[in-house]
Amino acid sequence: METLEVNLEEQFQTRIDADVRIEPKDWMPDAYRKTLIRQISQHAHSELVGMLPEGNWITRAPSLKRKAILLAKVQDEAGHGLYLYSAAETLGATRDQMLADLHSGKAKYSSIFNYPTLSWADMGTIGWLVDGAAILNQVPLCRTSYGPYARAMVRVCKEESFHQRQGFEIMQTLCEGAPEQKQMAQDALNRWWWPTLMMFGPKDADSPNTEQSMKWRIKRFTNDELRQKFVDMMVPQAEFLGLTVPDPELKWNEAKQGYDFGDVNWQEFWDVVKGNGPCNHERLQARVDAWEDGAWVREAALAHAEKRKQRAGTAAA
């Protein structure tokens, strides 16, 4: 029995190494299934909670155009959450259980959404920086080994690129505006730069699961590799906007053809992960309230569907 299991695992790894996608009914190691459910649901939760900091500005967008764009973006995020929950459900997770884990605090979501959105410039910075970081994380996942996850990510990535561009456009408009507007943009960059670098997760040396996840191809670059890529990508864009990246140690390194940059405040990172960020409580409470306040709608819709089914049955008889 044990040799059979070993054999299956070997065959499974051979398929992964050959870049053959794994589909829902295929045999897979329990740990692969568990890790994927955790990773995908965590990602879905991030999309859901990610609606909140931006939802904060929908009613106060500076123009009808910006409001329509922000609404569309937030709606996309709800959609991304739904694509991902549905991918996780193909692995046997249930929607109710995933949401229960989010609400109880057992499941995590991206720490970036535990920071407050204080000015309109934050909408620009979130689109430009935060979605820029998300895209770097997500593009490689379009080739991840689990079929439904990869397919969901293809759809997500197509839509994210609008998110990033609209954010950059907000920043550009502010930077070309009055000095006060440019100052707003700089202030937002100052507050979001470091939390965005934290989005790539702990340093490789402190990320024990990376090796296995790379072997399974559910992660295709390490945290530090992506963080470096992000800094190299973003610094020229900040320069174009005339903004200063808030890192005194930031310096071009000719030898490595990339930037050297300062260390993230890891104490802050772990504090926020553990639930003690500026908005952790508020964000989670908003999700729990939405779920509880919507309970009667979910029940009524089911009762209505049941009643209609019975009526149709009576009519047919």
Binding site: Q75, G79, R298, A301
Partner: peptide, 23 residues
């Protein structure tokens, strides 16, 4: 294209419109 939850077929089609055909 994927899946979703809905109470009945009519709601499933409406939700599918919102989730899978925004563009």
């Amino acid at each position: 294209v994927g899946s979703l939850h809905a109470a009945d077929a009519e709601m499933a089609i409406q939700n599918a419109r919102d989730v899978y055909t925004r563009r």
